[in-house]
């Protein structure tokens, strides 16, 4: 049962929806980590999901990826309800967490085979996608190296590519560039753009506000709410700021929880 893609009425972003969150909330005891957030992300968009530590970004991402059940509200990801169609959502998303999460004791090749297998790709599909992936990353000679032996930047690029191996319609990146040098960050964003150009929606959290400038649209979470949402240019105009850094600091300063 494939639901027809929902169409958005809001003007300035692509019309097919990848993610739609409606009053999505998560409560831990007396603490409301995510407080009724609503937003749409269009297919093929690079959506920056910003916020200070503890603002609720990770909780939100975990709900959207099916790792955490929402307390109330609803969301659809890739056209499927995250509560009732979680299995279909999982087949259609890729995920890269802030913790590096490939297997260090397996080789590059073995990690690729594992994720290909888990996502139900055939051996031929895995073989051809692995070849593409390795040549795109210029890793061909490293296929038989253990992942643990790779430099961090390589690992992150590999983890991103592995998250895209099954051609998900949306990829969630939770602080993908933490601890990575500026050159590698640059290369990483080139990979993100390439994925977006191929039609993949990229939902990314980051603490680097220069990176946020690369996003099509940006949301800023403060205390579980979305305090600002728009293109980097419109946000700067709205807050009469020179850069997103200033927007962010101005919003975050009003926060009570961080």
């Amino acid at each position: 049962m494939t639901m027809p893609p929902e169409t958005s009425v809001v003007g300035d972003h692509p019309s097919t929806l990848a993610i739609r969150a409606q009053a999505l909330s998560r409560v831990f005891g007396a603490f409301t980590a995510v407080d009724a957030i609503s937003f749409d992300v269009g297919q093929g968009e690079v959506f920056g999901f910003l916020g200070a530590n503890g603002a609720g970004k990770t909780t939100a991402i975990r709900m959207l990826t099916g790792l955490l059940a929402p307390s109330s509200g609803a969301a659809t990801v890739a056209g499927f309800d995250i509560r009732h169609d979680a299995a279909r959502v999982r087949e259609r998303i890729g995920y890269m967490s802030q913790r590096f999460s490939l297997y260090d004791d397996l080789t590059v090749h073995e990690n690729i085979r594992l994720y290909g297998g888990i996502y139900g790709l055939t051996d031929e599909q895995i073989a051809s996608r692995e070849k593409d992936l390795l040549s795109r990353l210029a890793f061909t000679s490293s296929a038989s190296l253990r992942v643990g032996a790779l430099p961090l930047g390589w690992k992150q690029k590999l983890a991103f590519s592995v998250a895209l191996l099954h051609s998900p319609s949306i990829v969630f990146l939770d602080e993908p560039t933490g601890g990575v040098d500026p050159v590698t960050r640059r290369q990483f964003w080139e990979l993100i753009y390439q994925a977006a150009a191929d039609g993949t929606t990229v939902f990314v959290t980051t603490h680097y506000l220069d990176e946020a400038e690369y996003c099509d649209r940006v949301s800023i979470m403060v205390d579980g709410h979305i305090s600002a949402l728009g293109t980097p240019a419109s946000l700067k105009a709205e807050f009469a700021a020179d850069d997103l850094d200033e927007v962010f600091v101005r919003l975050a300063r009003g926060a009570t929880k961080s």
Binding site: T65, G66, L67, A87, R90, E91, I93, Y95, S97, R99, F100, S101, L102, Y103, D104, Y115, I118, Y119, G120
Partner: peptide
């Protein structure tokens, strides 16, 4: 502990 479990749980693995 290593966070690989998250990847498994996000995947279609049951």
């Amino acid at each position: 502990e290593r966070g690989t479990m998250e990847l498994l749980l996000v995947s279609p693995l049951r």
